[in-house]
Design a protein around this nucleic acid. Structure first.
Lengths: 110, 110
DNA sequence: TTGACATAAAACCATTTGGTGTTATATTAT
DNA sequence: ATAATATAACACCAAATGGTTTTATGTCAA
């Protein structure tokens, strides 16, 4: 159980092409060729991106005749949302600029 | 102007060590050696991570005597937050399971 | 059944990544 | 002055990344 995940969601989303693929799949399920037609890279390259997205459980493909239809599973993105939300306190309150200045004073002392 | 950014914020945050560095710096400003003491990697490796984080404008270092103190700039994380928030619609409403099932039916037909 | 289409699998390649070790330079404390 | 500390600047390395081309294999439509 609990297989070693080779690609986590942060890494999966680090590549702009993969982010665009996720966006495409948010509108409709698409076959590999249909996804490829949106980019200037080869189908093989697209398949590799899809494999990485699959390993992060962000998409899954289902064979349908001679096509393989991919669809989105956005749930793992929650991990990113939660991670980022921790840092919101540092820009979300009015005291952040004061905090910044105080910290800089500390820098000068040490 | 508008220099070519070698590392964007998505890529900067893709590495677990770099995420941990950001977390450390959210508590207090730290010198390179202090950051290094939290990990089992060499200082040289930590410096490379800090360089990548700097290029993404997530941290900046300020020389103070013989030390270089790094501090956090969480603002660029907003880009990630905004990107992820688009996908919230797909898990945030009660209809997502129905939507999922309908899409699967469509897969069977095509 | 035969050609066109869609995917799969494999070998290959250049660059980046995440790390190492070594050497040099600047600063601090004794 | 000198030793210890903190960083900087290199050169180096194995593995991963993001891409390619080539060669199959399965499926559909005429």
């Amino acid at each position: 159980m609990s297989a070693i995940k080779k690609h986590d969601v942060f890494q999966a989303v680090a590549d702009p092409t993969r982010r665009e693929i996720l966006h495409l799949l948010s509108n409709q399920n698409l076959a590999i060729s249909e996804i490829t037609s949106h980019f200037s890279i080869t189908r093989t390259a697209v398949v590799k991106h899809l494999t990485i997205l699959s390993e992060a459980n962000l998409v899954s493909g289902k064979k349908s005749g001679r096509e393989k239809i991919y669809h989105l599973h956005p749930e793992p993105l929650m991990e990113i949302k939660n991670w980022v939300s921790y840092f919101e306190q540092f820009w979300n309150n009015k005291l952040s600029m004061l905090k910044y200045l105080v910290e800089n004073e500390e820098d000068k002392k040490e």
